[in-house]
Design a protein around this nucleic acid. Structure first.
Length: 293
DNA sequence: GAACTAATAT
DNA sequence: AATATTAGTT
């Protein structure tokens, strides 16, 4: 079997760095054999693998444990969902980067997936080298928090291996025209066309903090630790332990996050009412369990 | 005053 | 829309 050959991954190649270790990846693949092979490959490199064979299973996992997933690897030909539907649905459910792997080698299919939000498209058969560096996608936009005025930080954990060096992960522009796709590559985007004169010497340019997926995940992790009672900016900030991050940053993000939760909850109430009706029917059937004598 | 958060500004 | 900043409350 070629399967077993693929499984003989050279573990020695993994010694270069311990980077994929701890990266949690959700693999969605309907074919059990393929799922097993890919999962094994990932595990050898140190990924933490969760699996699903159906789109609905994947959705359940994401709904309940979205913050425990860093990366999603999915097939597009699933029994219970169309190829692009899975991308759309998962994209709404999770902020993690989505990688598609499929045997379909059509250019239009590949581009379609990329336009639908996939970060990367791998053509089967997937080999170890395809999978080895996927963890880099979780660092898609690096943390840039190095600013002046570093206060006293007496606490360091070890959670963040944030490397600001060149983690060049191509981000397929999501705002491209869809009809014209020729192989135009722009490697350099040095946009010097800003003719804005900075009047003052003491204006080093404030750059807004960008809440990347990674940063948001740290935020969610901190939220989980402090619990609902302690979900306040100062405590969250301490648990996040990200250098340069300010309490105000967390406050702002927390506000946005709460709005998001509320909006989600309001949306859920409609469906919740429907479910309640169903439950009520079942419940009324069971009410006669307590018939004495 | 410090921390929190809702409201507002960029 | 996302993030920063202000302002009002505890």
């Amino acid at each position: 079997m070629t399967c077993e050959q693929v499984l003989s991954v050279d573990v020695t190649e993994n010694n270069a760095g311990s980077f994929p270790i701890g990266v949690r990846i959700l693999v969605v693949e309907s074919d059990p054999t393929c799922l097993r092979i890919v999962s094994k490959m990932l595990q050898v490199f140190g990924y933490e693998v969760k699996t699903a064979t159906r789109a609905t299973d994947a959705m359940h996992i994401l709904r309940e444990k979205e913050d425990e997933i860093n990366l999603i690897l999915t097939e597009t030909h699933l029994p219970d969902m169309d190829q692009y539907e899975i991308l759309e649905t998962v994209g709404e459910l999770s902020s993690s980067p989505i990688v598609v792997f499929s045997a379909d080698n059509n250019e239009s299919t590949i581009l379609g997936c990329l336009f639908k939000g996939a970060e990367l498209y791998l053509v089967k058969p997937v080999i170890k080298n395809d999978v080895k560096n996927l963890w880099q996608l979780t660092y898609r936009t690096k943390l840039k928090t190095a600013v002046s005025g570093e206060g006293s930080n007496t606490f360091h954990g070890g959670s963040a291996e944030q490397n600001t060096s060149s983690l060049t992960v191509g981000n397929p522009a999501s705002t491209m025209g869809m009809t014209d796709q020729k192989g135009k590559r722009k490697e350099l985007e040095e946009t010097d066309n800003d003719h804005e004169y900075i009047d003052n010497l003491t204006a080093p340019k404030k750059s807004k903090l960008v809440w990347t997926n990674e940063l948001h995940n740290i935020f969610l992790q901190a939220l989980r630790i402090v619990g609902v009672d302690g979900a306040h900016p100062k405590k969250i900030l301490q648990h996040m332990n990200v250098p340069g991050l300010k309490k105000e940053n967390v406050s702002s993000h927390l506000q946005k996050y709460r709005l998001y939760l509320k909006r989600e909850q309001d949306g859920m109430q409609k469906t919740a009412v429907l479910h309640q009706h169903l439950i009520h029917k079942e419940g009324s059937l069971n009410t006669q369990t307590r018939n004495s004598s």
